[in-house]
Simulated scan of single mutants.
Amino acid sequence: MLKVIVPYQAHYHDKLVGIWHRAVVQTHTFLTEQDIEFYHQMVRSGALGQVEIWIEIEEDQEPVGFIGLDGSKIEMLFVDPKYHGRGTGRRLIEHTKALKGDNLQVDVNEQNTGAYVFYERLGFIWTGRSELDASGRPFPLLHLEFKGSGIEAP
């Protein structure tokens, strides 16, 4: 099925919030239900409007994943769990590199080893660590930067 990457459009907001929620429930198993609801409220009430969003959509115009950018920093990357492992995240990263160049940064939760492995495979390296997340909560972040190569798409 053909997929394309398009800029954010407001009519996708609720679907992106749904993708965010499904992905977080599946991949952020270290969060409690209360933690997820705290972040879910932030995403529902405006976090998507604070970053540059690009969405991968299918032929039927349904979004399957999205990336949020602040300059060359990846602030969020979420893919609907039923599309995990199908290249959506990699394509969104490649799209970002085409837009912003190779000087990309991203923070990942230390407990989210799947995200760390994903970025490492794409050529990101560890550059630092913070004890708290951006909301001041005790979820350590690993700071990563793109340093080239990584695994190329087949």
Rank of each mutant, 00 (worst) to 15 (best):
E75G: 08
Q41A: 05
F124S: 01
D102W: 07
E120H: 07
I125W: 05
I93S: 01
R22W: 07
K3N: 11
V6G: 10
A115F: 04
T96Q: 00
D70P: 09
R22V: 06
K73H: 12
L132K: 12
F78M: 04
E145I: 08
F78E: 01
H143E: 08
L144H: 10
Q111M: 07
G85T: 11
D60M: 12
T113Q: 11
V6K: 10
Y83L: 15
G150L: 08
A153V: 12
Q105R: 01
R137A: 14
L48N: 02
R137P: 06
S135M: 02
G46P: 09
R91W: 01
T96G: 02
G46M: 05
M1H: 11
A98D: 09
K15I: 14
R86K: 15
T32C: 10
G68H: 04
L99M: 14
R91C: 00
A134L: 04
F124T: 02
S135P: 00
R90M: 02
L16M: 13
E58K: 14
G49N: 11
L142E: 06
K147A: 14
L141C: 07
I74N: 00
L99F: 13
G128H: 10
V106S: 00
L122V: 00
K3M: 15
H84D: 10
Q41G: 02
V79K: 03
I93L: 00
G71Q: 15
K97E: 08
Q41F: 04
A98S: 10
I125P: 04
Q26L: 14
E52D: 13
S149H: 11
T29A: 04
I67F: 07
L99G: 07
L48S: 03
Y83V: 14
W20T: 01
A115C: 03
L132Q: 12
G46K: 07
L92V: 00
K73Y: 05
K100I: 15
N109A: 07
G148H: 13
V4D: 09
D107E: 07
L132S: 06
D133P: 02
F139L: 08
I151C: 12
A10G: 03
I19Y: 08
K15F: 11
R121G: 04
D133S: 02
Y39Q: 03
S149G: 11
V17A: 12
E37P: 09
G123T: 02
R121V: 05
P81C: 13
D102Q: 05
L142Y: 11
A10M: 02
D60T: 15
A10Q: 05
E75L: 06
E145K: 12
L16N: 07
E33M: 08
R22L: 10
I125Q: 06
Y12E: 03
G46F: 07
H40A: 05
Y119Q: 01
R44H: 13
I93K: 00
T96L: 03
D35R: 06
K97A: 05
G87W: 01
H11A: 00
V108E: 03
L142R: 08
G46L: 10
D60S: 13
E56I: 15
G128E: 05
A47T: 03
R22Q: 08
L92W: 01
E59M: 11
G46S: 13
H21R: 13
G150W: 07
H40G: 03
G128I: 10
E120N: 10
Q26K: 11
D102R: 06
G101A: 13
S72W: 14
D80G: 08
V117H: 08
T29C: 06
Y39M: 03
V4W: 13
E152L: 15
S130T: 09
M76N: 03
D60Y: 15
Y83N: 12
H11P: 00
N112S: 05
